[in-house]
Simulated scan of single mutants.
Amino acid sequence: MSHDDFPLHDASSAPEAQRAFDHAEQTFGMVPNLIRKMASAPALAEAYLSLNDVLQKTSLNPTEQGVLLLTVSRYHECDYCMAAHSMTGRMTGVPDDVIVALREDEPINDPKLEALRQFARAMIEQRGWVDTATQQAFLDAGHTPAQMLEVILAIGLKTLSNYTNHIAGTPVDEPMAAERWTAPK
């Protein structure tokens, strides 16, 4: 298979994905290339957009959400999502030094955000089998048990998009070109 097997759909090539295109347009002000690629499987596009909506309803503030989305995308080495969430992170107020740290896989100076990053990484690396010391460090930094579960939601959301971008070769959208990122080899 090649990336060409996953075209950048529009409403005429994937009419069954129209609801997802409308949802993306309403959410992002455009239909990102990610959704155009996902339109080969409209249910995936709808699931991604729905989970994105649900993440907004969590107790995680926009900066914490941005940290999670960039942490997972960095771990999965997703060029597309690193560009997308660097751009949207800046738009939602994630401090520049935090975005740079996440892009470079460096510690974040803010202890609460660093604990969030470390917990998310541990969840991914250990497939959810995070030891009690790691869980306690997360709680001691000021997070809640409910937020542990909300981290799982963010990991699930980004896994859908990161894996799609890996197999579909999603090109970075023009509005996020300035945030282009390439995974280290």
Rank of each mutant, 00 (worst) to 15 (best):
G142D: 07
H166R: 13
A120F: 01
D105Q: 14
V98H: 04
F138Y: 10
I99N: 00
T132Y: 11
L160D: 00
G128M: 08
I155C: 01
V130K: 01
E125K: 15
P107Y: 11
T164P: 00
A101F: 02
A168M: 07
A154H: 00
G128R: 07
G93A: 14
V94Q: 11
R127G: 02
T88G: 06
G93Y: 14
E114L: 08
R103K: 14
P145V: 09
P107N: 09
D97G: 12
Q126S: 11
G89K: 04
A137G: 10
F138P: 00
V98C: 08
A122F: 07
D105E: 14
D105K: 13
N162C: 05
A146T: 09
R103V: 06
V98R: 06
T144F: 06
T159G: 03
D140A: 14
Q126Y: 02
I99P: 00
D97L: 12
D96N: 14
Q126H: 08
P107M: 09
T134P: 01
R121Y: 10
T164S: 11
T88R: 07
M148D: 02
I152Y: 05
G142L: 11
T164A: 13
G128E: 05
M148Y: 01
A146F: 04
H166Q: 11
L139V: 06
M148N: 02
T164G: 02
L139I: 11
